[in-house]
Design a protein around this nucleic acid. Structure first.
Lengths: 225, 225
DNA sequence: TCAAAAGTGTTGGAGTTACACCCATGA
DNA sequence: TCATGGGTGTAACTCCAACACTTTTGA
């Protein structure tokens, strides 16, 4: 029987969205292995912290960021995925609003930055496949849970929401039908303010009603597309 | 900084279905902690095996069973979930056909048996919450992926399929509509044999067409309810 | 007054639901 | 011939997809 203890890490796939682009948080490694290579933020789990706490701590240490949305994604445990030995990584999926985009690197990390999801650098370990899994989950999930709102600021215009969905799903969305559908859930509050920037008619601003969402959840909500 | 190595185990939530009842595979522990208590089959991961291999090995050792369907469920890592110290468990969800129901216990296990899902004994560790998570996943998943077939024998009658769905979803199903829906996927082959046991008109037998399903998957299938 | 983006309804068709009677078999 | 479970069709309705013009603003 082999030694039962193994290294265990957490890694975070954190998505942000700004100006029509989905972006991903990466850190440049300051230590071996893969020193100087870009990688997902993450690291070893301490003895007395939960996995989720570990992710939150690492995100704070390595990128100076705190997330509102974080869920467990998948656990990667192939024996050869890490040159240091047997390392099992529990991956998390996180979403961050544009107003929390400022980063500050430290702890084993040279820098932290946002990358366009279609233009990623070469990555350390098996992090590319972790990201692929996260993208798949994100795309599936926005069609049946209102997590898209976690990628926008607390107030947003309808066309911002529409562009987000359209770019995430990779297909055009009918403005009128989309609006009808989203409105039918009754989870948006229309504010009296309007956004006036750039050309064109100013857009009304909306806000997602989390309290009402939680109430619905208890009776089972069917959010679809 | 605390010691980075931890214990890592795999646990399997294996469901079976027979005569209208969903059942769950449990093993009675032969060693401490929780000696004599029922628990999910599982155990420590060896150095050179993948997580999935570890589950398969443990299921074979502890219950003498091999599964056709196995997927990763969730990773449980609360610091206090195991009295032996910090133990992180990667849980898997498995399905087994009635024709592979015979069990044979060994290795650290006193016996292995099937339990009705509504009549479970007191369980070791946090295994109850692992089971709850698995049930939730199973119920959600049968509505959009044809995994229900993994719980039936390779040939089955339509009413068996219908009873399975109805009991898993906990609500009655309209026989005619259900048949129309399932048939519209074109994934069932009707056999010429009929099942003649018990009273009533004999039922035609069907078979799930896995090849055709795989073909569909590549173009994106929308199996819904 | 032009350009740019926001906002708004209707209609046809597809898909879902609701619903009840006849069929084949063994006792 | 009766009891048991298997098998089938239609009509109303709901939901979804397709589609184009008007409004508001700044330049």
């Amino acid at each position: 029987m082999s030694s039962p203890k193994k290294y265990i890490t957490v890694d975070a796939v954190v998505f942000g969205y700004e100006e029509g682009n989905l972006s991903l948080l990466l850190v440049k490694r300051g230590i071996e292995p893969f020193k100087g290579r870009w990688a997902l933020p993450g690291g070893f789990v301490n003895d007395n912290e939960s996995l989720e706490n570990a992710v939150e701590r690492e995100l704070n240490e390595e990128a100076g960021i705190t997330l509102k949305y974080l869920e467990q994604l998948y656990t990667f445990g192939e024996p050869s995925r890490d040159p240091r030995g047997r390392v099992i990584s529990v991956a998390y999926l996180g979403l961050v609003r544009p107003d929390a985009f400022e980063l500050s690197a430290s702890t084993d990390v040279i820098e932290a930055d946002w990358f366009n999801i279609n233009d990623l650098p070469k990555l350390a370990f098996d992090h590319k496949s972790i990201i692929d899994k996260a993208l798949e989950r994100l795309r599936a999930k926005i069609t049946y849970q209102p997590i898209g709102f976690e990628l926008l600021n607390t107030t947003f215009s309808f066309s911002e929401l529409e562009r987000l969905y359209s770019s995430l799903l990779g297909r055009p969305i009918d403005r009128r039908n989309f609006r009808k559908k989203i409105m039918s859930f009754g989870l948006l509050t229309q504010l009296s303010e309007k956004r006036k920037e750039g050309p064109g008619r100013p857009a009304s601003l909306f806000q997602f009603d989390e309290d009402r969402y939680k109430t619905y959840l208890e009776k089972g909500l069917y959010f679809e597309l």
